[in-house]
Design a protein around this nucleic acid. Structure first.
Lengths: 209, 209
DNA sequence: CATATCATCCCCCAATTAGCGGGAAAATAG
DNA sequence: CTATTTTCCCGCTAATTGGGGGATGATATG
């Protein structure tokens, strides 16, 4: 009877919330909660025993935080799918969680149905995200439309950020080294920096490249 | 009566599909189709007249392709929300579309309901994506788990990719310049490259950093 | 316990690079 | 028509890079 039911682990320090999730998840036949923990350490300790396909992970936890926990879990078992469930919509946290290996990120105002939908989506190979989170993620691909740099300058800075030297940039853009140097001079002046790394840092931060 | 209905433009070269979408969208009261085009050029030409809040954009078009169209449209009107609707799930195209400024990316096997949901989501500031697309996007944040580089080497390479010099890397990691050099030597040997830019290129391609 | 990898540190050396200063001319766009 | 962009040139010096050759102790991994 259990053969086709996905094993789920919940890490959530609020007992009421954790037990609520368990009830919701256990109420449908496709999956069941093998274990619930109020901290990441216990989850890690029992990972090999629990063998979950999916972990529902809170981020604000006592002791080890959720981001560290995701990294640690993924190091032990790369195939487990982790869905972050938190109140935080802070973009830094979102990207940290995704970089650490989260497969989905849903915020805590989600309904029971949305929670179950997220689990379904992960099982089907998707990446469930709350609406705002998806927007954050998509925005991260887009450049700042108010860049002070010209198209050519942006092109040069992009190559610079890939570690190319002046002469390599010149070669790739079919210009002389002097022209590349000239562009870089102008880039530095516009960004008010005076070195490659500062320029890259500023451009990355302001999404100019 | 029209004041609160969102204006939608459809760019889709298949007449039947385009007209089908129009019927679906016009069947609900929240939005209506102001224009439909079978190519991007005509859409661009009429952008100021149509004043759409949302554009439903196909990628495979005669003449100017969808990616170029998105860039061109966004250059004219940064606030218009563009939802890509295509059969392609190719990751390169997805990222190009998002980088060009698409707010959503749905594939053509979506139901009428899902199409309308996507439009709703965009209006509410979200970023609708098909399940597979969301997974692609989320995966793009994650590193290759089979990196040949050690943690320290990865750290060094990350700083190198930010344009830092050997001495700056040494400073940031509290090691000597010689140690940084040593790490870089080992990185080059492991990646079988012999320069900074090659290393960064290979590491980026294989998502080691 | 032996071997491998990792992280740290040291030397020498030559070629290239980066960034500073100063220009200038043609093309493009508003 | 004026501002910006893109292209190109010169000289100069400090710094960087990447090649080579090592060594040490710690920590895994078998």
């Amino acid at each position: 009877m259990n053969y086709f039911r996905s094993r789920i682990v919940i890490v959530e320090d609020n007992d009421a919330v954790r037990e609520g999730f368990s009830l919701i998840i256990n109420s449908v036949s496709n999956y069941y909660v093998v274990s619930g923990y109020d901290n990441a350490e216990d989850c890690l300790k029992n990972l090999k025993k629990d063998k979950p396909e999916i972990i529902l992970m809170d981020l604000e936890l006592p002791g080890m935080n959720g981001i560290e926990a995701i990294s640690a879990i993924k190091k032990i078992n790369t195939s487990v799918e982790i869905i972050v469930n938190t109140i935080y919509e802070n973009s830094e946290l979102v990207f940290q969680a995704l970089c650490a290996g989260a497969s989905g990120y849903i915020t805590k105002n989600t309904s029971h149905t949305e929670l179950l939908d997220a689990i379904d989506e992960v099982i089907q190979g998707g990446a469930p995200m709350s609406s705002k989170i998806a927007k954050l993620v998509v925005n991260s691909f887009q450049k700042n439309p108010n860049s002070p740099l010209s198209a050519r300058e942006t092109e040069v800075l992009e190559l610079l950020s890939k570690g190319k030297s002046y002469s390599m940039i010149a070669q790739e853009l079919f210009i002389t080294k002097e022209t590349a140097k000239s562009h870089i001079k102008n880039i530095y002046s516009k960004l008010q920096v005076n070195s490659k790394s500062e320029a890259i840092a500023k451009a990355t931060k302001e999404k100019l490249i």
